[in-house]
């Protein structure tokens, strides 16, 4: 079975009629197409790839709609399918597997010298004066796994619990990955600010 269900411990299969399936699809899935397309674009950086990824995700969602319980979190369910499709299809195609060593991330997060002086010279005003492209470039420069947690949390507003289900990782790992991702993003922003001579 496709591992797209968010609530695997509580998963039950429904038998929707074709008409019901179309109604659920229209009412619960399609309203999230903007977020889905933007998530796909921020993962792939290509409009055509983003389009294919979203299309593929919606087709899978429809095919496995009987495992979706109406009124539950459709957006998180769709994001999970999209993320899995990206890993299984798109990332393999691009031959760019994750280079992140999460054990290293965990030990970094738990170490005493975490955060040291990485961002001491980045100011709030500098960040506020940056334009959208500068923020986007810094975000896009992050490894996809770090970029993903920032997108899910800060752009899409998912809770840690939802992120854990979307990404298939424990909540503690969501927190540590997010923490590390934000430090890396700050470092990119600081370097950018220094390069541009921002005060």
């Amino acid at each position: 079975m496709l591992s797209c269900g968010l609530y695997t411990s509580d998963m039950s299969i429904r038998n929707y009629s074709i008409k019901q399936k179309e109604e659920v699809f229209e009412r619960e899935f399609l309203p999230h197409i903007n977020s889905m397309y933007n998530f796909a674009f921020r993962l792939t950086f290509e409009e055509d790839d983003a389009k294919d990824l979203v299309q593929d995700t919606y087709l899978k969602a429809f095919r496995f709609i009987d495992s979706f319980e109406q009124g539950t979190n459709a957006k998180a369910w769709l994001f999970r399918i999209l993320k899995n499709s990206f890993i299984n299809d798109f990332r393999k195609k691009s031959k760019q597997p994750s280079k992140v060593d999460y054990n290293e991330v965990e030990s970094y997060y738990n170490s005493e010298d975490v955060d040291e002086t990485i961002t001491t010279d980045l100011r709030v005003e500098t960040v506020q004066h940056m334009i959208g492209d500068e923020i986007t470039n810094a975000l896009n420069a992050l490894d996809v796994d770090f970029r993903t947690v920032i997108i899910l949390c800060d752009l899409e507003g998912f809770t840690y619990e939802e992120m854990a289900k979307i990404l298939d990782i424990p909540i503690g790992t969501v927190r540590s990955r997010l923490h590390r991702a934000r430090n890396l993003l700050k470092d990119k922003l600081r370097r950018y600010a220094n390069k541009m001579g921002y005060k």
């Binding site: 399609l30 197409i33 903007n34 397309y37 933007n38 674009f41 409009e47 983003a50 389009k51 979203v54 299309q55 961002t119 980045l122 100011r123 709030v124 960040v127 506020q128 940056m130 334009i131 959208g132 492209d133 923020i135 986007t136 975000l139 920032i150 800060d154 752009l155 934000r182 993003l185 700050k186 922003l189």
Partner: peptide
């Protein structure tokens, strides 16, 4: 304060792409 500012610019300054018309 820095974290709040970064969260805010991420949310409000990053371009939101329009969904291609023919996708749905």
């Amino acid at each position: 304060n820095l974290d709040v500012a970064i969260k805010d610019v991420l949310k409000n300054k990053i371009e939101v792409k329009s969904v291609p018309e023919d996708l749905v």
